[in-house]
């Protein structure tokens, strides 16, 4: 009857990790920072046959900026094993993608951020985490590697449901790519209870190359984004109050929110309208302050 003791797989190179991942498939639970795996095991929700840790693969923890993307805009490359804390404290990120640094600083506690990784939080696809909605709005992508090669998956395509991603059983998420050229970016975390609570409604609003992208997190199984509603801002220099209100209301109508300990579906719908509007007002202020809006608009 005794519970089988899981195998501990600790490869020291990415190649070795990919080989193990391919061999074990879904038998092996991948351990990045291990916070989510730890919680699942403590709750009795996970009894892995094998644990595959990426901790000893030094080549998976890095932060680099490249100017080589197609548009000539800088591209932030984040190694999957980069911790939240490292991202939040990186001068590179603070300078070039301040919204990333400030949003990651809102996740859980310093203890969790010392342990949890950027790759891990995306692969977990937990609806109430902060980073997925922001990375979605920033138009980020992830690199998925397998022995056969690699593919680039947008965050939008990566997170397909509740704790569910489009990663294949032989793939490892190795890198996150965040494009630059951002004219303004805002993340608002609305908590309905303690300051330490997870979000009841999270709104990320980003303008890049004149296009608006609003992603609402923590309200449904996966981040919520409606390009046709965001298109209302197309061709506008800024986002005036009326437009912000309209986009907020349309988002509230378009989303089917869930109910949980942090708020009912009915309440969430109300807050989505308010918080999307406020995010757009904040974004507008930011664009005006930096002059980004008028410069970018052609």
């Amino acid at each position: 009857m005794a519970r089988p003791i899981p195998a501990w797989l600790a490869p020291t190179s990415l190649e070795e990790a990919l080989e193990l991942r391919a061999r074990y498939g879904e038998e092996a639970t991948v351990v990045a920072g291990g916070t989510f795996v730890g919680i699942l095991i403590n709750q009795g929700l996970l009894q892995p046959a094998a644990l595959l840790t990426l901790r000893q693969i030094a080549e998976l923890a890095y932060l680099r900026v490249e100017d080589a993307s197609a548009s000539g805009k800088p591209l932030l490359r984040i190694g999957a094993m980069t911790t939240h804390r490292a991202l939040e404290r990186s001068p590179l990120v603070q300078r070039g993608w301040p919204v990333l640094a400030s949003t990651f600083a809102l996740v859980a506690s310093p203890r969790v951020r010392n342990q949890a990784t950027v790759g891990g939080v995306l692969a977990d696809a937990d609806y109430a985490s902060d980073p997925p909605a922001l990375l979605h709005a920033l138009g980020a992508s992830v690199v998925a590697r397998s022995p056969q090669g690699q593919r680039l998956i947008s965050v939008e395509e990566l997170i397909v449901g509740h704790y569910e991603t489009s990663l294949r059983p032989d793939e490892l998420l190795t890198e996150i790519q965040v494009p630059g050229g951002i004219e303004g970016a805002v993340y608002r975390k609305f908590r309905s209870r303690s300051s330490e609570d997870r979000p009841c409604v999270a709104v990320a609003a980003v303008r890049r190359e004149g296009r608006l992208r609003v992603t609402v997190g923590a309200v449904a199984e996966r981040p919520q984004y409606f390009p046709e509603i965001c298109a209302l801002a197309e061709g506008q220099a800024g986002i005036d109050a009326e437009l912000a209100r309209e986009i907020g209301e349309r988002y509230a109508a378009a989303i089917e929110p869930l109910s949980d300990a942090r708020g009912s579906a009915h309440y969430r719908r109300r807050v989505i309208a308010v918080e999307v509007r406020r995010a757009l007002e904040d974004l507008h202020q930011q664009i005006i302050a930096t002059g980004g809006g008028s410069q970018r608009h052609v």
Partner: peptide, 28 residues
Amino acid sequence: GLGICGACTALLNGQPISTCILLAPLAE
């Protein structure tokens, strides 16, 4: 048991972590 409360805090290489959700082999 969720890394929320901090009663299990230890420093790992000088930084606070929650030992209740740190798989023991990761301390290697």
